[in-house]
Design a protein around this nucleic acid. Structure first.
Lengths: 118, 118
DNA sequence: AATTCATTTAACCGAATGGTTGACTAAACC
DNA sequence: GGTTTAGTCAACCATTCGGTTAAATGAATT
């Protein structure tokens, strides 16, 4: 099992390592927002918020649709799925209730039930 | 549902945003390793590797047990569980096979108003 | 006691981060 | 056409990051 696009993971985890950006994602999980709307709750300049949004875009976590003079941002969850997949490998180390999922995820390591043998 | 220790999450995601550190975690998932063993596969000075390990410790991802002159590092997966819990909120956005979890999440998650922060 | 081995610490370096302000572009409004 | 509105871009700044080398610590070896 090898790490697929390390650069993508770098960007995703880096994007998630900032509370402002996590808050923006949380906001986007409710509905799409303009740059201004995303920036509003945070005590920083619009330019600073714009940089954060660009970091999210670089990571593939947000997609932007320019509509007139406003830029509408939407959550792009596939990148989060990448991070989740990476974490999935370690889930067995802390979780007992994910055993079934664990087996499903690692389909090449599925525990065989008695009688299941060929 | 509120983000619990943002600083901890900052440190965890920051630690995960580096391929060297992710490789070290992967190595530790097999068995505990000394600092030297963790450093060996990477083309960098021992001092540089030592810094990476300290970043992992800061994030709570690794615990160190000094034994004589060697420092033995072990995976500390609770911190990964924190990251996983954060991601869990978003799982419903990409996963269809997590419907049960989704239901669980929704059960203690009141419908959110626009502007509600993470 | 001297040396080697495992590791950290300190000082340094260049690049990236996260913020600022000010100028710019372009769409919307009167 | 002129002004406001939405957002980016560029320059700058302090701090952090990821790496280096060299020196220091401290346990093991001889």
């Amino acid at each position: 099992m090898v790490e697929q696009q390390p650069e993508r993971l770098d960007a995703v985890f880096h994007a998630l390592a900032d509370p402002t950006r996590r808050a923006m994602l949380r906001s986007l999980s409710a509905e799409p927002r303009s740059v201004g709307e995303l920036a509003a709750p945070h005590r920083m300049s619009l330019a600073a918020a714009s940089k954060h949004i660009k970091a999210l875009e670089r990571a593939g976590l947000v997609r932007r649709q320019v509509s007139g003079r406003t830029h509408v941002c939407r959550l792009a969850p596939e990148a989060l799925a990448d991070a989740d997949a990476w974490l999935g490998f370690y889930r067995r180390f802390w979780s007992d209730s994910f055993d079934v999922l664990d087996a499903l995820l690692k389909s090449d390591t599925a525990p065989r039930l008695p009688g299941e043998d060929a």
